[in-house]
Design a protein around this nucleic acid. Structure first.
Lengths: 192, 192, 192, 192
DNA sequence: AATGAATGAGTGTTCATTCAT
DNA sequence: TATGAATGAACACTCATTCAT
């Protein structure tokens, strides 16, 4: 073993990440049942057996992807923003801008949004249990008090907002020359 | 008791419709690959073999469903409406009202919208080739001239509009106690 | 479904028994790892999938075979015999005769002995926990008191006895023109 | 420190022997199909790849083991003994004593007997073609003439004898606290 | 016509073998 | 030379499809 312990571990972690990242796209596009391990391996550029060195089964790989889609990074950012002493509409503008940018530039984000939303749909849980939705609803509530956001159930409006982010992610994932979602369109969904 | 020719044909047609209708829901929820014929048959309440008396294969059944999702009934209505001597905003209001109503009451419509949209996404064709989109874009263009619809690429706005209809269909299909989409929300997407 | 409930259940039971019986031979000859499901299915004369209608996995099939090899029928007979008011040597003669006969005529018995013995070897448990061994040891002890059986640890002698039955089973299983074990040879192992 | 040609060759030979010796035990216990190269390598205490520096394939390794189990050392000894001017019963006593001792002390011998016997069973050839059997049969024939050995087919009796040696080897291989086979028990199988 | 047990082609998973280090 | 991560051929298992009833 010519590699050091450290290098070895790093390489394992890299390969694992690579599989997760590439498989995410495949699963997001085709779903679980229409994704064949053989296709997936070819798409990643590795042998079929290699996948099983990092994941016990196709199902475990899929679960890991779902789990990592539900990561808390976004939620933290959103919470931070929600607690800033800013008018709600400014916060919303900031979120919309961020979304426009990341949907355009960050393919991992696109995939994550797609998988996360499909996960939420299938879980059938109330969306209010998801922090992305509840945090945005808080900001919306603030905006309604400030008169800058249209009236209506804040959670319904949050769902509308994130739904449109999902729609844009779907378009980017499937359609070659898609219309990118603009921050303005997103904000318009909520602005009074 | 031997049935008449007519009765016999009618029964066949009824069963075929029943399979199509029930299978639509299953496919819309789970996609092609995650739908097993055995599950499908149980869900319909028939034997597995019966499906094969009406459809040559799982793929053919799925194709029939896709085909029937793409039916021209909606397009005709839309064309008719588009050509009426009405202000665009009135036409849009009418469409939004119709959508609100059918999304609420007509499960077949919900399923049809879901499958049609997924079909469009996967085809990767430009959406402008779909008449639903191009007809609505016409109305939007009219509205922009009349000053009642916001500016922007009409096709992009049509996509936004139908995308939100799709979102609502998804929610109805998956979430028990979902927020129904209101006509007002839909119209707001376009109104200046 | 033209079959009655009863017939249906019977057919299932028959097929299950057939698989168990034919697979026993294959596993006894080749062991677990060298037995391929495809070969097994061909040997039984059914499709591969059919095996999975009756057993969850290759492992479960193997376990069922092992379990059924350990059945208590033989033990009961042996206990009954052990408790008869007969001289030990008469009992031993009877057992030896029975073994000679069944090894010659009953292939299922041959397979059962083979699998049971291999199971006992692998379990590494003391053989004294197996009733076949402990019951025979009782008879041997009786024989030693009566002077008709050679001296020595009764369990060791029982092991010697059953070991030779196993040997004969192996020969019958593998060798076309094998020497059949005679009752006399068996009894000689123990007779003073 | 560059090794001399000689040292190098010696080290290769040592490793090869080590692999053969340790692998023998594994194969004898688990058979071919249930032995994984990865397990085998761990059991030997080397990397998987190392095995392939000494043997072309798993099959070749297994064949080498089988071949070396069939070595002629034992046969030579037996022939030598058979031709000595001794009474048959004395020869048999000598063989039995030797077996008792080696089964007790020499694990390689235990493994060799196990593999050789399984090889003979699977070959389905008549055992008379094996010299171990035919030589012992000669001695038995001599003993029968001398009146010291029971009557019966000499080859059948030789099979009985070696079969019991195999049984004892199996017990030693699998069972922790097994009864060792005594020379007396072995000889009793043949003694008139 | 309707059924569901049986089938085998196709997919998921394992493991003997290779090869970069 | 020795290694074990990577590979893909081979095997276990599933599921769309058939067919006897």
């Amino acid at each position: 073993m010519p590699k050091t312990e450290e290098q070895c571990k790093q390489m394992r972690e890299d390969m694992r990440s690579r599989i997760l990242q590439r498989a995410s796209i495949y699963f997001a596009r085709n779903g679980f049942g229409d994704t064949k391990i053989s296709d997936l391996a070819r798409h990643i550029g590795i042998g079929q057996g290699t996948i099983y060195m990092y994941f016990r089964s196709k199902e475990e790989l899929f679960d890991e992807i779902r789990k990592s889609a539900d990561n808390k990074e976004e939620v933290k950012k959103l919470k931070l923003l929600a607690n800033l002493p800013l008018p709600a509409i400014a916060k919303i503008n900031k979120i919309s801008g961020e979304m426009e940018k990341r949907l355009k530039e960050d393919e991992d984000f696109v995939v994550k949004i797609t998988i996360l939303t499909q996960l939420l749909l299938e879980k059938q849980d109330d969306i209010c249990s998801n922090e992305l939705y509840s945090e945005l609803a808080q900001i919306i509530k603030q905006g309604q008090k400030e008169g800058s956001v249209i009236s209506g159930d804040p959670l319904y409006l949050a769902d509308l907002y994130w739904g449109n982010v999902y729609l844009s992610a779907l378009r980017k994932l499937f359609v070659k020359d898609h219309h990118a979602l603009t921050a303005e369109t997103l904000t318009r969904l909520l602005r009074a």
